[in-house]
Design a protein around this nucleic acid. Structure first.
Lengths: 276, 276
DNA sequence: ACTACTATGTAATTTTATTACATAATATTG
DNA sequence: CAATATTATGTAATAAAATTACATAGTAGT
């Protein structure tokens, strides 16, 4: 629609062009305005605005506004821009959410499906899961615990390295470790994972490609998010990690066949009223 | 917006529900209709339609239609499809991530900026923050705690109702409560919030529009996500809630002016190597 | 069963969009 | 370069739509 206005502009009558200019100058504002507001902004009469709409093949002003609004809504490409102190609430929201979306799109494009399949197989072959992560990654670990829990095998998350270490040393070859880290360079976590490996547990990491943690793990689900401009630490990676683990959990569920899905649906219904 | 209507529906008055049903039944047609048309289709009076729009936090019918139209337009971009057992890893990933993205787009389109501004002001005016959430929402509360923590005021998250209750009773008018819930109908949480209000604390809720919790809170940051087809419980709402609280936190930070941003940057550098 | 409150509708009012018509501007032709 | 036709634009009237103010019906609580 915007493009249509632009290309139609020169073929319009003089006063209609004024209307086109006003709308092109601030389309977001225009969709909220009345004919009156636009007419006076453009310095033309109200019928002129209607004629303008008709020239654009709309039956009236309302339809024109509707089309324009839909156009504006779907134009959204999600590119990340830094927030600045003078952003309005709307700008802030748009920027942060677009950033989050962009990082999810990124994950979608980079996720390694072989690794995912291997991780799913590890889950199927194990008899219990331990999740390790500290700081922000502890949140992700807990979230994943909630999910994996309902798939039928014991799952527990530890965030304190002093507990992770002894816990890891008690694992065996039937245990699965999921180690979560943004940078993959947290020394405590690396030590924990090494202990788990020495105990012959399988290790899936959720971290940056080529990081020490990714190298150490049996399988890495890569989450490479640049947090370049966030005021806060890894918010976007946290989202991305959560989604990756969600994919793992759902993957396990669907590979488990009909009966697992069925059981999950049951579990869900039972929990729903509590899970708020 | 559609999701918003769905989740708000049960909290509406009877005749407003009729309006909701008419619109949900054929949203594409509704955006082109006048109040009259919708009113007569729903078998209610015209003012009822307006009241319905206001209940959805729109200033009038026009704004409502506009939002709905924009919602319909962007709905096609990332649409959610159910996962099936024979999905490949790639299909699984695409489906789940698109679902997550769609829910973030929703949040972007529906967030109420006035409410956001008020919530930011509450933070600025308070001297400590308590976050309440159970189950999945406890994860969100902890995540938010991590963020708010660094803005300079004490923040603590409680997930156990038996701890939330006494904690809430000890609050005073300088305390800010952030209550998180998917449905906004968790009785324990409602009780906690009532206790907090009786203690004169300010309450910001992060939950579904028109839910009992939203009604009870001083300000609600609406997160209306339909989890219709997820195998797991509120994963998408959890993401959405986290993002909304991230927006709140960043909003507080940027409104705090240059010096707060500076301090945060310092804090971040200091923590970075730990915060993995 | 009465009171108070909430929900809903009716009718008036205001705002918004549209039409019909008049006038001004521009082009066309003798 | 008039005179006239044609097109463009505005004014004022009208119709439609949205909104408000108010009245009444319904409901919950005593």
């Amino acid at each position: 629609m915007l493009a249509k206005i632009k290309s139609a502009r020169d073929g319009l009558r003089k006063s209609e062009q004024k209307v086109a200019d006003v709308i092109l100058a601030d389309p977001d504002n225009s969709v909220q305005s009345s004919i009156q507001a636009i007419a006076s902004l453009a310095g033309v009469s109200e019928p002129t605005v209607i004629r303008f709409c008709r020239a654009l093949e709309c039956v009236g002003f309302q339809q024109f506004k509707l089309r324009l609004a839909q156009d504006l809504a779907s134009r959204g490409t999600f590119f990340y821009r830094d927030v600045t102190p003078d952003d309005s609430g709307k700008e802030l929201t748009t920027k942060l959410i677009d950033g989050a979306i962009a990082s999810l799109v990124h994950v979608r494009n980079q996720l390694n499906y072989d690794a995912l399949d291997k991780a799913i197989q590890f889950y199927i072959d194990c008899n219990r899961i331990e999740l390790y992560g500290s700081g922000g990654s502890a949140i992700v670990a807990e979230d994943a615990q909630l999910k994996l829990f309902r798939l039928g095998k014991p799952a527990i998350a530890y965030s304190d390295p002093h507990i992770q270490h002894p816990a890891a040393s008690l694992l065996d070859k039937d245990a699965l470790v999921i180690a979560i880290s943004h940078s993959g360079r947290n020394q405590d976590l690396l030590t924990t994972v090494q202990i788990a490996k020495d105990a012959r547990a399988k290790v899936v990491s959720v971290t940056a490609t080529k990081s020490p943690l990714a190298e150490l793990a049996d399988v890495n689900l890569s989450v490479d998010i640049v947090e370049d401009s966030d005021i806060f630490s890894p918010v976007k990676s946290r989202l991305a990690q959560m989604v990756v683990l969600d994919i793992l959990a759902v993957g396990v569920a669907v590979r488990g066949g009909e009966e697992m899905l069925h059981q999950l649906a049951k579990a869900r219904r039972a929990i729903d009223f509590k899970f708020v």
